[in-house]
Amino acid sequence: MKLSREEVLHIALLARLGLTEAEVNRFSKQLSNLLESFEILQQVDTTGIPPTAQSIALQNVVRSDEAQASLSQDQVLANAPRKDGDFFRVRAVLGNT
């Protein structure tokens, strides 16, 4: 299992994770080594075995559709790096590449 430089850059793009040149090289090597050792999983016969997403039997947990108290707008915005009145301020999404 060898992760190329291009693959590392592709994964970083999917994760929206900026990487330095040194990190690209280091991750290419380290992730390749890790995945190589994880290939041991392919030796396990899992024919007919269902996947487990979590270990308890609960499914489709719902609550009644009733309004409940929530945090105030001020509390929610208190940690915002950029805000504008009662809103989070974000950078332009359209018309700006």
């Binding site: 994760a15 929206r16 994770l17 900026g18 990487l19 330095t20 940690n79 915002a80 790096p81 950029r82 989070f88 974000v90 950078r91 332009a92 999404v93 700006n96 590449t97």
Partner: peptide, 22 residues
């Protein structure tokens, strides 16, 4: 955007996101 460290030195949304995480 909502909380936590936030890279500020750009007007580009994608660059802000990637550098915030970097």
């Amino acid at each position: 955007v909502k909380y936590g460290f936030s890279y500020q030195e750009t007007d580009n949304m994608w660059e802000a996101l990637e550098k915030t995480r970097q």
